[in-house]
Design a binder for these strands. Structure first.
Lengths: 156, 156
DNA sequence: CACGATTAAATCGTGCGCGATATAATTGGG
DNA sequence: CCCAATTATATCGCGCACGATTTAATCGTG
């Protein structure tokens, strides 16, 4: 009589709570919900805020550079940037040297939001209930996960 | 002459890459992109797959229970479930005892997807480039972050 | 210089995710 | 028993996110 199949080798049914992807998915939703009222005070959405973050680091980036920075395509960014232009926080202008490119420039109101945002976001670390060290470690791990997934999807 | 202001005490400008929320946001997008072709083979979207996961654990859940499980509201779930019903993987039926409730039942095709999904998702841990222990640790930390954000948003 | 190939944005359609609201069924206090 | 309050879904509108395609400008090779 052969050995009974090792229970440990028998693949447990995978549950929702075992999936890293679900943890990330639901944490992202939780961040969105947490940020929504804060962003509303700035007259922004959360993705629009991320675009502004990128522009506060380097103004005048093209749509493609922003997409590279944020991991988004022009089909997402173009309408988003148009809404931000309507809201008066950025301006979009064609590059004179290369008319294919569109440079995104902060307006003075767009620049002024940086200080306000800094003040409003000061509460976030507290809300995470984690120490600074834990947050750095977590962020580093999530970035590694993200980058590995991205390059596994492309050519390894 | 006074000391030069301590550089360490001077609050560095916060950069996109310092934000945990951006790491989570971009990792979630990366998961979506990674899963998309896999889910396409199952005829599903990623959120639809998460609903099926919940139903494979417990069939016949109501819309509200599913929402609780996934962290979603009826305004997200109702149209999503209708698409899944059209796709033939679930059925929705009003509860006889309480006509307000809608129970979500797996169809045989919906049940059969569990095995296929298991096979197709076997490649995921490899793609993350992390060890099992690292993934467990990461998932636990992300869940803690998510839960803390959720309860900070409600009544602390 | 010409013209196909490449590059950069924009457009289109679909599916979430959610705030606000509506609809319908059940419950509970007088 | 009745009707206001509560509960469970559903509806509506908006803003992402993205695959597929289009438009327009630039580049490269002959």
């Amino acid at each position: 009589m052969p050995e009974t199949p090792a229970p440990a080798a028998f693949p447990e049914k995978i549950r929702l709570n075992d999936l890293v992807c679900f943890a990330v998915y639901s944490a992202n939703n939780a961040f969105n919900r947490f940020y929504k009222p804060i962003m509303a005070e700035l007259g922004l959405t959360y993705p629009q805020f991320l675009v502004l973050m990128a522009l506060w680091e380097e103004d005048g980036q093209g749509v493609g550079q922003l997409g590279e920075r944020l991991g988004l395509e022009s089909n997402t960014l173009t309408p988003l940037l148009k809404r931000m232009e309507t809201a008066g926080v950025i301006e979009r202008r064609r590059d004179k040297a290369d008319e294919r490119r569109v440079a995104v420039q902060l307006t003075p109101p767009g620049r002024d939001l940086e200080a306000k945002a800094g003040a409003l976001l000061a509460c976030v670390p507290q809300a995470t209930g984690m120490t600074t060290d834990e947050l750095v470690e977590l962020r580093t791990a999530v970035e590694r996960l993200r980058d590995n997934l991205a390059c596994a999807r492309d050519g390894d």
